[in-house]
Design a protein around this nucleic acid. Structure first.
Length: 447
RNA sequence: GUGCCUCUAGCUCAAUUGGCAGAGCACUGGUCUGUGGAACCAGGGGUUACGGGUUCAAGCCCCGUGAGGCACCCCA
């Protein structure tokens, strides 16, 4: 018999790792709520046809099966399409513009690699029911704040516009059917360089003249206002370009007025983004240091909800990949690794001391302090101290015969070895005064 | 989905040409039941990912399966 393994692309998460995840999740939650996004949840499973026809080629990565009632069932591929279905379902129960966040696992039958799993969590914040670029600006702001809140350094949100991409293909004289080929190629500009992109376009039947025209546009860099003005001149007369440029000018203006830190966003005319449903501005959060791809993708999708409703409701949103963010945090050591949820280990002195220790631990718990006694059968002090040490429990409390007789308790700060004795009645205050840690609502340690 | 690489104790890795499966760390126990991290001593742990084949003999060679990784593809 083969020892049990977890399914390809899926992982168990151990307590320490889980504490770090919970810390990141609750940090994101706080940032999302600071902007007025509210939580929802949707089922992991949807009717398969809810999911199909939305992602383009990626559709083949949707996990699907037939259930016992003969229904064709798909596991959600992202949280955006379920949101669109959700809005269509609950349209009359929501007030618009509707802002929701959604932090849950999604599934993709992809071939796994580092930073690439078959089950992973997305952290989404979306705004439904407004075509205003202000919504897109808010989405970018919430991203910047969320990534800043976990001390992510050097991240940059690349910004482009689907209409600009299309107009550039038109400008180069490439038929719409081949536009995707061009977008796919230029998306690799940073990776394979101008020559590589040009070669790929030529191999896919793009004429050298068209390739160069596109590349000359895409390689424009610099201050967004300046680049957009230059584009306006070069693409003059192109309807899509006009619209895209106007959107982006408005968007960058709002970002400035919202005091977005300019080092965290840029105009990137080569950014394509694959998913079919994007219609307007598109965003991607990138870090340079660990080579892990993007931390998140986002954009405006004004026609997606219409696919369920028959009537368009404009929407825009952002999606962060939890696993990749955790990977970066660990590679760069951005946050101290939380060890345990326990604040205090109450030690036990033999059978005579057991009652006093149990009484004390229950007092601590009633006061909201995370406290435990050593549950092993052999409870010599050495063993109990080792347990506290290995778990990283910051405080140990001793109620031996002397303390019990005097109505006192002895508290040891494990990290320093300092010890002090206080009356049992004052122990809660004394422990709280040590300010061992703050707590999140879910109990994860916080810095 | 394509190509390539990898899998030996909980972890990191050894094992000559195909010839008795090992070390360090970790773990458990002891020195040591009023105080953890150290040291010393002892111990447990393996169908070499799983299944099959070749061979007198397989951790090593061959085939299949599973999982991990790299490059594509694409993406979080």
């Amino acid at each position: 018999m083969r020892p049990p393994q977890v399914l390809k692309g899926m992982r168990d998460i151990l307590p320490q790792q889980m504490l770090l995840r919970q810390h990141v999740i609750s940090t994101f939650r706080r940032v999302f709520e600071r902007y007025g996004f509210e939580p929802i949840e949707t089922p992991v499973l949807e009717y398969l046809d809810v999911l199909t026809g939305k992602y383009g080629e990626d559709e083949k990565l949707i996990y699907h099966f037939t259930d016992r009632g003969g229904r064709e069932v798909g596991m959600r591929y992202d949280l955006t399409v379920p949101l669109a279905r959700f809005v269509a379902t609950h349209r009359h129960e929501l007030s618009f513009p509707f802002k929701r966040y959604h932090i849950e696992p999604v599934f993709r039958a992809d071939r796994p690699q580092r930073g690439r799993y078959r089950q992973f969590w997305q952290c989404d914040a979306d705004i439904v029911g407004t075509a205003s670029m202000l919504a897109d600006a808010e989405v970018i702001m919430v991203w910047i704040d969320a990534l800043s809140a976990i001390h992510m350094p050097n991240f940059v949100i690349h910004i482009n516009h689907r209409k600009l991409l299309q107009s550039m293909a038109q400008f180069a004289g490439v038929p719409d059917a081949q536009a995707v080929t061009i977008h796919r190629a230029i998306d690799k500009l940073a990776k394979i360089g101008r020559d590589g992109v040009r070669e790929e376009m030529l191999q896919n039947g793009i004429s050298p003249e068209a390739a160069d025209r596109v590349l000359d546009l895409v390689e424009l860099e610099g201050e967004p206002g300046v680049v957009l003005a230059e584009l306006r001149t070069r693409l003059a007369g192109n309807q899509l370009a006009e619209e895209g440029i106007a959107d982006l000018e408005e968007l960058f203006r709002y970002l400035g007025e919202l005091n977005a830190d300019p080092k965290h966003y840029c105009l990137d005319l080569a950014l394509a983004r694959g998913l079919d449903y994007y219609t307007g501005p598109v965003f991607e959060a990138m870090v340079s240091e660990p080579n892990i791809g993007s931390l998140g993708g986002a954009g405006r999708y004004d026609h997606l909800i219409g696919m369920f409703l028959g009537e368009d409701i404009p929407a825009t949103g952002a999606s962060l990949g939890l696993e990749r963010i955790i990977d970066v945090i660990q590679v760069l050591n951005l946050l101290p690794q939380p060890q345990t949820v326990t604040d205090v280990l109450v030690t036990i002195f033999g059978d005579e001391g057991l009652g006093a220790s149990l009484g004390f631990v229950s007092q601590l718990r009633a006061a909201g302090i995370n406290a435990e006694v050593y549950l092993g059968e052999r409870r010599d002090l050495r063993r109990q101290m080792q347990y506290a040490d290995r778990k990283g429990i910051p405080l140990a409390a001793f109620l031996g015969p002397e303390e019990i007789a005097a109505g006192m308790v002895n508290v040891r700060v494990m990290a320093t070895g300092e010890q002090f004795t206080v009356p049992v009645g004052e122990a809660v205050d004394a422990i709280n005064r040590l300010h061992v840690r703050e707590r999140d609502s879910d109990g994860a340690a916080r810095q």
